[in-house]
Computed example of a mutant assay.
Amino acid sequence: MSIKISKENAEHYIWGGVCDGWHLVKGQELSVIHERMPGQTAEVRHFHERSRQFFFVLSGQAVLEVEGVRHIIGSQEGVEVPPGVSHQMRNEGAGAVEFLVISQPTTRGDRINEE
């Protein structure tokens, strides 16, 4: 059954103590998460053994470090990260950044932290 989903009715969670996530699609084969990172925050560097991810910035500017290469991602831009590739999303600015993380298959149980 299809239902309309938004941040207002999606399952919400907090990660990193101050960052927000909303599960827009939460399936075994596909995950779509809307995330918000306040200024000067970063995710732990990690990789996924099976999951391929696509990070797409909705507003603000993020830095996605992939295998030591810095990608500055502005609004309406994205970067794909294949399985097995180390990456870290950061917000080095003062304002919040909002972005989508699309993962196939889901990343649940498939994350290996490196720090």
Results as ranks from 00 to 15, higher is better:
35 E>D: 14
94 A>L: 11
5 I>T: 11
90 R>S: 01
93 G>C: 03
8 E>H: 12
23 H>T: 00
104 Q>Y: 04
34 H>M: 11
98 E>Q: 14
20 D>Q: 11
99 F>A: 04
79 V>P: 05
74 G>Y: 10
76 Q>C: 09
95 G>C: 05
48 H>Q: 07
1 M>C: 15
75 S>F: 07
16 G>T: 03
54 F>T: 01
29 E>D: 14
50 R>N: 12
5 I>E: 00
28 Q>R: 12
105 P>K: 01
74 G>K: 11
68 G>M: 11
45 R>C: 06
16 G>W: 05
88 Q>A: 05
61 Q>Y: 03
26 K>D: 12
46 H>Q: 14
45 R>M: 11
26 K>F: 12
13 Y>I: 13
63 V>E: 14
61 Q>P: 03
16 G>M: 05
35 E>K: 14
64 L>D: 01
80 E>F: 02
38 P>M: 06
77 E>R: 13
46 H>W: 05
87 H>W: 01
85 V>P: 07
31 S>V: 09
75 S>E: 15
49 E>G: 08
96 A>R: 01
102 I>H: 00
22 W>L: 08
114 E>I: 14
47 F>N: 06
12 H>S: 12
33 I>W: 06
57 V>E: 13
28 Q>F: 07
89 M>C: 08
114 E>G: 02
68 G>D: 10
93 G>D: 07
34 H>W: 14
91 N>F: 02
22 W>H: 15
46 H>A: 07
59 S>Y: 08
76 Q>N: 15
76 Q>F: 12
104 Q>W: 01
45 R>T: 01
41 T>S: 07
90 R>F: 02
115 E>H: 11
74 G>C: 09
77 E>V: 09
67 E>I: 04
40 Q>T: 03
53 Q>Y: 02
17 G>C: 08
67 E>N: 13
19 C>Q: 10
11 E>T: 14
29 E>A: 15
68 G>P: 07
23 H>I: 07
80 E>Q: 06
42 A>N: 01
6 S>P: 00
14 I>N: 15
89 M>Q: 04
9 N>Y: 12
16 G>L: 05
101 V>D: 05
106 T>G: 11
51 S>P: 02
106 T>R: 00
111 R>F: 02
109 G>A: 08
66 V>T: 06
13 Y>C: 06
12 H>E: 14
